[in-house]
Every structure is written in C-alpha cells, then in structure tokens.
C-alpha cells in the first residue's frame, strides 16, 4: 500500500544488541521484584505484630511458696490493676493453661504450682490511652515487691531494628538492580548509535531535531524494557507463588503451627509489584533519550 511506512527511520529492531535488552532487563526486574516482595511482606508482618501487641502488656508476679499464696498475690495485684485508669481488662493466666504450655517439655508429671513458676497477668489498655508506665511499675512494686511490668517494647524494638536492616538491604538490592538496568540501557543505546551512525547522520543533515532521533530510540527502549519487565515479573510471581505454596505445604504457615507469620502479599502489594515493568519501561525510555541527546549534542 502506497504511503504506508515500511518501518522506523532507524532500523533498531534489526539490531542484535538492542534485541538483547529484554533478556537483560527480565532478570533484573525478577531480582527487584523478589527484593521488593520481601520488603513488602516484612512490612506487613511488622504492622501485624505492632497491631497485635498494641495495648497489651504482661504483669509478671514473683513465684509464691504455694498456690494459696500465689492466688492471694494475684488478687492483690488484680485489684490494683482494675482500678487503674485506662486498663480495660486484667486477666490472670489460667494455671491449667500454664501447665499445657509446659507439657511438651515437662510432661504431665509436674504442675506449675510444684515448680513455683511466676504468675502472669494479661493486661489490656484502652486504645489511645497513654499510661504512665513508671508510676504503674512503682505502684506494683510497692504492692508486691518483685512484680514486673513488661510492655513488649524491648522485644518489638529489636525486631524493628532487624526488620529495618532487612528493608535497607532490600532497598539497596532494588537500587543496584535499577542502576545495572540503567547502565545496560546506556550501553545498548550507545551500541545502537554506533551501528546506525550513518542513518542518524543522514537524518541530522536533513534537519531532524535531536528529539526526533531520540524518540525513535526511546520508543524502542520503552517497548523492550517493558516487555523484559513483564517477563521478569511473571517469573517473580511464579517464584513467589511457588514459595508460598511450598511453605504452606510444610505447614509452617498453616494454622496448626504458626511459628512464622503469614508472608503472603495483599492486593495493593501485588499492584506495587505490577508497576515494576512500567518503571523498567519508563527508566529505559528516559535513559535512552538522555544517552542519545548527549551523543547528538557532539555532532556538528
């Protein structure tokens, strides 16, 4: 058909080095997706822990000589706690429940009372209440010396520290993968510029503006970056699904043994991962444009 364009002015699609780009971008997006998925999952787990422990504390009473003494001490502390403003409930841990917790290690031969274990009280605080923990600790110690109030903060802070380190590592991985992708596009574009130098010079001499030439490179880079990104994301999704499936199959994530929290991603987190191919395409496009514009600026 007359007038139908037979192709781009610059035959980039015939260029072997450019055709290689999706194969280089795909593994990079794959790695970035896994790193990002790990970060997002960890973020979700931390938020869950934070939510779970928000407004809960544990009061630990020193072990009594006998059950009666222990019950009396619990009653004294309960009376104090239940009259403390902001406390919604104070529930002593059932002795039978304590025994059940110890059963896997000690069997049924001994009871918690025989072992003189400390008594525990689960404390719930109304949301939004800022309890004066120092004052409460002092009152508890005055009522029953040796009583300890644990607000789980130390444990949670250590976990947060660990999680932050893991997240920072994940971010560093994503940044390094992104840098590698950008450099790949730079070298591929430079190779394209060298291979098609004659065509580019011809267009330049015809009065083509730098942007006219750069657009041909950036369109191709975006197409290839995006297709590589889609392939990388698909592989990453398959890997994540496989990991989740394998974990569920071993029961680690199952209901019966929740030693680890649920590491699966929610919809918005999948949506964030789905943006990776778009980001790869846009990054490739902008990199190609800048590389071409800089190279053209050196032409007479």
């Amino acid at each position: 058909m007359i007038g139908r364009r037979t192709g781009n002015d610059i035959p980039l699609r015939r260029d072997g080095s450019v055709r290689l780009l999706p194969w280089l971008i795909a593994p990079m997006v794959y790695l970035a997706a896994l790193a990002l998925a790990g970060m997002l999952a960890l973020h979700g787990v931390l938020a869950g822990w934070d939510r779970g422990l928000a407004g809960t504390m544990t009061v630990e009473l020193p072990a009594a000589r006998d059950a009666a003494g222990g019950d009396a001490a619990v009653a004294k502390i309960l009376a104090l706690l239940r009259t403390t403003p902001g406390v919604t409930s104070a529930t002593p841990l059932d002795r039978a429940a304590e025994g059940k917790l110890l059963e896997p290690w000690l069997g049924t031969a001994v009871t918690p009372d025989e072992l003189q274990l400390p008594r525990l009280i689960d404390l719930r605080i109304a949301s939004g209440t800022r309890l004066d923990l120092g004052a409460l600790r002092a009152r508890l110690a005055a009522t029953l010396p040796g009583t300890v109030l644990d607000d789980h903060r130390r444990w949670l802070d250590r976990l947060y520290g660990l999680a932050l380190s893991v997240e920072a590592t994940g971010l560093a991985v994503v940044a390094m993968v992104g840098l590698a992708a950008v450099l790949t596009v730079v070298f591929t574009t430079r190779a394209g510029l060298a291979v098609h130098h004659d065509v580019i010079e011809l267009l330049h001499l015809m009065g083509a503006r730098d942007l006219y030439i750069a657009r041909q490179f950036e369109r191709e880079a975006m197409r290839l970056g995006f297709s590589g990104g889609i392939a990388g994301l698909a592989l990453a999704a398959l890997t994540l699904w496989g990991l989740g499936h394998a974990a569920a199959a071993t029961g680690v994530l199952g209901e019966e043994a929740k030693l680890l929290p649920d590491l699966s991603l929610v919809i918005w987190q999948w949506a964030a991962l789905a943006l990776l191919p778009v980001a790869a395409g846009v990054a490739a496009m902008l990199t190609a444009r800048l590389t071409v514009m800089r190279a053209l600026a050196r032409m007479p």
């Binding site: 037979t6 002015d9 015939r14 011809l202 001499l205 015809m206 009065g207």
Partner: peptide
C-alpha cells in the same frame, strides 16, 4: 536544524536507507 531543512543534498553514494521503500 532549521538551516539544514533549507538545504537538499544528493550524495555521491546516494545514502538511501535500505530498510525503507523508495517512497519512504
């Protein structure tokens, strides 16, 4: 670039783009 558009050139070696038709 504007100046170049006012100039036409017939190259000795033609410099036709092999992947494009005569029309293009």
């Amino acid at each position: 670039a504007d100046l170049r558009r006012r100039i036409g050139v017939v190259f000795q070696d033609f410099r036709l783009l092999g992947h494009l038709s005569a029309f293009d």
